[in-house]
C-alpha cells in the first residue's frame, strides 16, 4: 500500500546555509489493511513524514509510492490524494463549508463526481462516523470530537484506501478523543481501511497493530505494540512514555513482583493483577 524508499527531506538553514535533514534515508513499508501508529516527540519528523504520504511535501531524496504511484509525479497528485486521505490536527482549520453535509461533499465535488453519487457518499460517510443527525448543522456548533469526525467523513467521501491522521486527537478533550479513536478503530477493523495514525499518546498507539517510533528523522523501533512497550527502559531513554498500565506493571516488576512484560491494555492488566491477588489469598 505505502512504500517508502530511502526518503530524505531537508531544507537550507537560513543563517548557516547548511542542509538540515528532517527525515534521513527512511525506509518503511505499510501493508494494505494494517493499522500503524507513528510515535515520536516534537521534531522527530513524524508530521513531515505524514505530509509526504499524500504529496503535500515532495521528497528531497528517495521515493514514496502510494498504491504503486510515485508522489513526485505531478500526474498522480489527485489520485494519490484521493487514495491516501489526510486528517489534520486542528478540526477548526480544516473545515471549509458552513454546513456539515456540504463539508463532506467538498472533496467529491472537487473530484468531479456526479451529484447523485456525491449525495449517496455524503449520507454513507456521515453514517459511518455516526454524525448523520447533524447533516444540516453548522460545524461551529459541534464539539471538537464531532468536528473531527466530520473531518474524517470529509476524507472518507473520496473513498480512499488509506487514511492518514496527523495527531487527530491532540486538541480534543478525553471524551472527544475516545469518540475519534473508536471511529478510527472501526474503520480499520470492520472496513479494512489502512490507517496511519501519527500520535504522541501511548494509549492510542497501543491500539494499533504495529508501532513505528521515530527519532531525529529515522525509524528506531518498528514492532508490534506488546514488543515495543515491553522495552520500557529503551522507550523512556528517547523521552517517550509507555501506557499507564505498562508503567504500573513495570514498577511492580522492579519491586520484585513477578509480572508479565507484554501487557498494554487496561483489561489485560486488570486480569493479571486480580489473578495475582487471588493467588495470594489462596496461599
Amino acid at each position: 500500500m505505502i512504500d517508502i524508499e530511502k526518503l530524505s527531506f531537508s531544507y537550507d538553514d537560513e543563517e548557516t546555509h547548511e542542509k538540515k535533514f528532517v527525515i534521513k534515508e527512511l525506509d518503511l513499508y505499510i501493508d494494505k489493511g494494517s493499522f500503524v501508529a507513528v510515535l515520536g516527540h516534537n521534531g522527530s519528523g513524524k508530521s513531515t513524514l505524514a505530509k509526504h504520504l499524500n504529496g503535500i511535501l515532495l521528497p528531497s531524496g528517495g521515493k514514496v509510492y502510494i498504491a504503486g504511484m510515485d508522489t513526485a509525479d505531478e500526474k498522480n497528485t489527485f489520485s494519490i490524494r484521493s487514495t491516501a486521505g489526510m486528517v489534520f490536527q486542528n478540526p477548526d482549520n480544516q473545515i471549509v463549508a458552513a454546513v456539515v453535509e456540504d463539508e463532506v461533499a467538498f472533496a467529491p465535488e472537487n473530484l468531479g463526481v456526479p451529484p447523485e453519487e456525491i449525495r449517496r457518499r455524503v449520507d454513507e460517510c456521515l453514517e459511518i462516523v455516526n454524525m448523520s443527525e447533524f447533516a444540516k448543522s453548522s460545524p461551529s456548533r459541534l464539539s471538537g470530537g464531532q468536528k473531527q469526525r466530520v473531518a474524517i467523513a470529509g476524507v472518507l467521501a473520496m473513498e480512499p484506501e488509506c487514511i492518514i491522521l496527523d495527531e487527530p486527537t491532540a486538541m480534543l478533550d478525553p471524551k472527544g478523543r475516545r469518540e475519534v479513536m473508536r471511529t478510527i478503530k472501526s474503520l480499520n477493523k470492520s472496513r479494512g481501511m489502512t490507517v496511519v495514525l501519527i500520535t504522541h499518546y501511548m494509549d492510542e498507539a497501543a491500539m494499533a497493530d504495529r508501532i513505528v517510533v521515530m527519532e531525529k528523522g529515522s525509524v528506531i523501533i518498528d514492532d508490534v505494540p506488546k514488543k515495543v512497550f515491553s522495552e520500557v527502559e529503551k522507550i523512556k531513554e528517547i523521552g517517550l512514555d509507555v501506557p499507564q498500565v505498562t508503567e504500573l506493571l513495570f514498577r511492580l516488576r522492579s519491586m520484585g513482583i513477578d509480572m508479565p512484560e507484554d501487557i498494554i491494555s487496561v483489561e489485560e492488566c486488570e486480569k493479571v493483577i486480580l489473578d495475582r491477588l487471588k493467588g495470594l489469598k489462596n496461599d
Partner: peptide, 27 residues
Amino acid sequence: FRRADDLAVAMDSRCYHGGKNRTRMKQ
C-alpha cells in the same frame, strides 16, 4: 493567517483545484 495556511493544506489534501471540472452536490 495561520488558520488560512492550515486550511489551504487541508483543501489541497482534498484535491481542491479551483472551479475547473468541479461538480456540486446541490444542483
